[in-house]
Amino acid sequence: MAGRLLSIGECMVELMQAEGDFLRKGYAGDTFNTAYYARLFLPKDWSVDYFTAVGTDTVSDEMLAFIEKTGVGTGYIRRVEGRSPGLYMIHLKDGERSFSYWRSVSAAKTLADDADHLRATIEASDIVVFSGITLAILAPTAAETLLLELRRAKAAGKLVVFDPNIRPRLWNDKQYMLETISAGARASSLIMPSFDDEAVHFGDADIAATIARYRGLGVGNIVVKDGAKGVTLSFAERPETFVPSARVERIVDTTSAGDSFNGAFLARYAADGDPQAAATFAASIAANVIQHHGALVPKDKLTA
């Protein structure tokens, strides 16, 4: 069955270390990475679109051209005069990553400013994906505009997917962060949290506590990612299931580990509706991704 997946958030210019003192330019961001991997593995009769805002500058033109080249649609993306995409640099040490960011004039911060356009874009989609980073970059009024439309989409029966992806440095206030992440969960029908984030920021003692808390917020389907330990699935009307992680020969770059899992999971889940098979497939793809450099790994380097 054909459909459309829409991913909402911020795509940034990515700089990463290359040979010598050179830097390699790319484009990435959590929800765009998810869209990229969903596009790789969804059936051809599905379309994948990205929703954000970019500037009218050359960097924005190049970013849009890159997104389109990956097969992800850009037709809904807003252009904002006087703004530009954000930029980040990856620092790697023993396969683990840290980041430096430049995003003060990021156009993506205005993605919810045109509420009518936002509503029409969401209404045209079957699966809608967003993250805690999507919410974090928005002003409180804009975040509420987005959440209103996502609640409307959930009520209409769309699959609204949320990865809390908690990044405290993006939030000015911890309590507001926790309240907004919880509001994002309430607007969702499928949530894909990382347990280490939930334990640190919400104080969850174990995965069962994370599942119970999100169940209490009205989330019907929950995928808790726990790094190398595996994934726990709690789906309505199905028994709770554990899926182990896939074997990794050598970790090269953990950038996009969770995003690639999300995209591959949603692609398989949209195709056959089996969360356990989707998680097994996604774990294999994520294991492949972290054995390569960069957020976006070509399909011919990925095996499941």
Rank of each mutant, 00 (worst) to 15 (best):
M1R: 15
A2P: 15
R4S: 09
L5W: 09
S7R: 07
I8K: 06
I8M: 10
G9W: 03
G9Q: 00
G9R: 01
L15M: 10
L15R: 13
A18S: 13
G20A: 01
D21T: 13
A28E: 02
N33A: 06
N33D: 15
A35C: 01
D45N: 08
D45F: 00
W46C: 06
V48R: 06
D49T: 00
F51Q: 13
A53P: 08
V54P: 11
T58W: 00
V59Q: 14
V59D: 14
E62V: 14
F66W: 15
E68Y: 00
V72C: 09
G75C: 11
S84L: 11
L87S: 05
M89G: 12
H91E: 14
H91G: 12
L92Q: 15
K93H: 15
G95A: 06
R97A: 08
F99C: 05
S100C: 04
W102I: 09
W102P: 09
V105H: 11
S106W: 01
A108M: 05
A108D: 03
A108W: 01
A112P: 08
A115H: 14
H117D: 08
E123G: 13
S131E: 10
G132I: 05
I137Q: 12
E144W: 00
E149C: 11
E149H: 12
L150I: 09
A153M: 02
K154Q: 03
A155Q: 12
A156V: 14
K158I: 02
D163L: 08
D163N: 13
D163K: 08
P164A: 07
P164N: 04
P164F: 08
L170Y: 11
N172C: 09
Q175G: 08
L178G: 13
S182R: 09
G184S: 05
A187E: 03
F202N: 10
D206L: 10
I207W: 07
I207P: 02
T210Y: 13
A212V: 12
R213H: 13
R215S: 12
G216M: 01
G216E: 07
G220T: 06
N221D: 12
I222M: 07
V224M: 04
K229F: 09
T232N: 07
L233V: 04
S234Y: 00
S234K: 00
F235C: 06
A236T: 14
R238C: 00
R238V: 01
E240R: 14
E240Y: 12
E240K: 11
T241A: 13
F242V: 14
V243D: 04
P244H: 05
E249Q: 15
I251H: 11
V252L: 10
S256N: 12
S256K: 14
A264L: 03
F265L: 09
R268F: 12
D274I: 06
A283P: 03
A283M: 00
A286E: 05
A287F: 06
N288F: 05
Q291A: 07
H293S: 08
H293M: 09
A295T: 11
P298Y: 09
P298E: 06
K299T: 15
K301P: 03
L302E: 01
A304T: 11
